[in-house]
Simulated assay, not measured.
Amino acid sequence: MTRQCSHLDHVQRPAPKTNGCEECLKSGDSWVHLRLCETCGHVGCCDSSKNKHASRHFHTTNHPVIKSFQPGENWRYCYLDDQIVE
């Protein structure tokens, strides 16, 4: 039986604050893929990127659900449940 994510009440569907990783844009760095925080709209780079700003954002804010910010991708992930969210 698949357990359901219990953190979807944190999803606010905010507008993205930037079109790229906020921190990488400020520092002039690059990223691999982008993730959007579904609580506040922070855009951060994925864990395949050297800075891992999306995960750092979670550890700083405890905002649990992100979604892919890549064109053509439509998935969410919950850090607290460590699972893809449907």
Rank of each mutant, 00 (worst) to 15 (best):
N62A: 12
H33S: 06
C24S: 06
G72S: 14
T18N: 10
N62M: 12
D29A: 15
H53F: 13
P16S: 05
S68M: 05
Q4I: 11
N19D: 15
Y77S: 04
H59I: 06
Q70G: 04
W75H: 14
R13V: 04
E38W: 00
V11L: 06
R56M: 11
G20C: 09
Y77L: 05
H57N: 08
N51D: 14
C24E: 03
Y77H: 09
S68D: 04
R3M: 08
S27N: 14
L34D: 00
H10S: 12
V85R: 01
L25N: 12
H33M: 05
C21W: 01
E73Q: 15
S55H: 09
W31C: 03
V32R: 08
L36T: 00
S55D: 09
K26I: 11
C46T: 10
S49C: 14
C37T: 01
M1S: 10
C78L: 05
S49V: 08
H57E: 06
P14W: 00
E23M: 11
Y77Q: 05
H59N: 13
V85N: 02
H10K: 15
E22C: 10
H63I: 05
Q83G: 08
R3S: 09
F58L: 05
R56G: 13
D81Q: 05
S48F: 12
S49T: 09
P64I: 03
N62I: 06
V85S: 05
P71N: 08
S27T: 15
M1Y: 08
N74A: 12
E73T: 07
H10D: 10
C78Y: 03
D81K: 00
N62K: 15
Q70D: 09
K67L: 01
W31K: 03
W75A: 10
D29R: 15
H57G: 03
Q70I: 11
T39K: 07
P64F: 02
F69G: 00
S68T: 13
V11S: 01
G20I: 04
W31D: 00
S6A: 11
R56W: 06
K50L: 12
V32W: 07
C78I: 03
E23G: 04
L25S: 11
S48A: 11
D29Y: 13
K17L: 13
D82N: 11
C45H: 03
C40A: 10
C5R: 02
H57R: 08
G44P: 02
H63P: 02
Y77I: 05
V43W: 00
H53Y: 13
V32Q: 08
G20E: 09
K50Q: 13
S48N: 13
N19K: 13
E38D: 13
S55T: 13
V43K: 01
S49H: 06
H10Q: 14
R35E: 06
L8V: 08
T60R: 14
S49I: 07
D9I: 02
Q70W: 06
E38H: 02
L8Q: 12
A54L: 04
K26M: 12
Q4M: 10
K50N: 11
D82A: 11
Q12K: 15
K67Q: 13
K17P: 00
E73V: 09
V85M: 06
C37S: 01
H10V: 02
R56F: 07
S68E: 03
H57W: 07
D29K: 15
K50I: 12
F69M: 04
K52F: 05
L25D: 14
K52I: 10
R56N: 13
P14S: 00
